[in-house]
Nucleic acid binder design. Structure first.
Lengths: 173, 173
DNA sequence: CATAAATGATGGCATAGTGCAATAGTTCGC
DNA sequence: GCGAACTATTGCACTATGCCATCATTTATG
């Protein structure tokens, strides 16, 4: 549709076409990953909303989190996190208690039920990806690992300083 | 944390470990892609919300869409789509008019301003990915293309029947 | 130690996003 | 011509969000 400019990088490589083709391949693969993610969530989306699931994922990554930290991880306002926590506590998915070390803070963590939801989605996602990988010719798998590692390394760490927040809700760590 | 079972597929390959390693590589790369996506949206998120952006993306993919179709593409209730459309029309990002061919339908399409927002994010995302690809050793790029194509093919089309909706908001098509 | 400053949790208010159910206008099949 | 089917739209309820104000607790400072 829109004419995509070709980002040839004169200073580095003359292989603008090359880069462009790889970029397209990455975008195409991303689409599949997004679809996988959406499917992996289907099983739980009648129990929790997407924002709630993201909150569970963050809490799964680190127990004994206080509210402001949780809000930061989710990149939402503390008041938003507050009300979500209230609902999740009411739903029996999160446990909230005052931090005895510092009584102005609260400590949050998943209940078993909350942890189970996260595990369910995580496992489902891994299964889906594993199934796809298993469908690939064995010889191609090694190439995929090497290629993805190179890509991930070239991408480096997410933006410095900014909170690495996870728009989708992909919670594996 | 949780012990991940190893999905060896006895009927096909004995390479369960192999599959597992590839799966992990895929998940790691996905994380980077999610971060890229989040950053590419930063520039517009003061003008539109994430759901609104997703709506713009869908409208960009096909002009003259009617409301129910739009709602289906977004996997939301028509009433939800309706109200979102109202806001986007008010914001000057979407154009809404009665279909002269069938007066019970409305035809929706992006305004120039709406299209510009989509283009902006799409271009930004491509640029970010291209920059990463450019940082890879040229020799690795060909491998990445081949590997990703194999992966995408093995993944096949998204779930049959279900609407392919895009949880994240990655709108390239 | 006493008091100001900083931290953290909450609540009030307004807006956006969602789904379900009901309603009203159009079009289609017979 | 009429009822069925399709569309848009609205009412209602609830979740998600941000900004700002308030109250409790802890920390820093004189």
């Amino acid at each position: 549709m829109a004419e995509h400019a070709v980002w040839s990088s004169p200073a580095t490589e003359p292989s603008g076409e090359d880069v462009n083709a790889v970029t397209t391949a990455v975008l195409t693969a991303s689409r599949l990953l997004v679809a996988i993610s959406a499917r992996s969530l289907a099983a739980v989306e009648e129990r929790v909303t997407l924002p709630q699931f993201r909150m569970l994922v963050v809490l799964a990554s680190r127990p004994r989190m206080k509210l402001v930290t949780l809000a930061e991880q989710l990149a939402v306002n503390p008041s938003t996190a507050m009300r979500m926590v209230e609902r999740l506590v009411a739903a029996g998915l999160v446990d909230r208690r005052v931090n005895p070390e510092s009584r102005r803070e609260i400590l949050l963590r998943l209940t078993d039920a909350g942890a189970q939801i996260v595990d369910e989605v995580t496992a489902r996602r891994r299964e889906e990806i594993a199934a796809i990988v298993a469908a690939m010719a064995p010889g191609q798998r090694a190439g995929l690992i090497a290629a993805l590692q190179a890509f991930t390394e070239a991408g480096g760490e997410p933006a410095l300083g900014e909170p690495v927040y996870d728009t989708l809700t992909l919670g594996w760590q």
